[in-house]
């Protein structure tokens, strides 16, 4: 049961690495989506129970997984998607103004 958590940590760290090290703005945004996915995976993991069914009780089930993290995951997806959309819009704007997506060149252009 530890290996999935390690995957979460690897994804989270990779995402953060992408955000702080990549020069390309689009890649930075991709980094954010990676971090967000790792958090959603973490939410699914903490709700998981071995051999549990989905929390839809049309019959009596023995083991049902935790419904709260799934609801939280839905919220997180929606918020993450909205934030990504706004980021991309700003990136497009920046590209239109300066004609480049590279952070270093942007800094040079600004002076």
């Amino acid at each position: 049961m530890v290996i999935p958590y390690v995957v979460v940590i690897i994804l989270f760290s990779l995402g953060i690495y992408t955000v702080i090290s990549k020069k390309n703005l689009i890649k930075m945004v991709i980094g954010f989506t990676i971090v967000e996915s790792s958090l959603i995976l973490l939410l699914i993991l903490i709700g998981y129970k071995p051999s549990g069914t989905a929390p839809i009780l049309d019959r009596q089930y023995e083991i049902v997984v935790d419904p709260i993290p799934q609801a939280l995951a839905l919220t997180t997806i929606i918020i993450g998607g909205s934030v990504t959309a706004v980021m991309l819009a700003l990136v497009i704007k920046i590209y239109k103004r300066y004609g480049t997506l590279n952070v270093d060149e942007l800094r040079k252009l600004r002076g």
Partner: peptide
């Protein structure tokens, strides 16, 4: 609601 995720999303939370 049978779907518990829905009941959490639209009622409890």
């Amino acid at each position: 609601a049978i779907n518990l995720v829905t009941s959490v999303l639209y009622d409890y939370r």
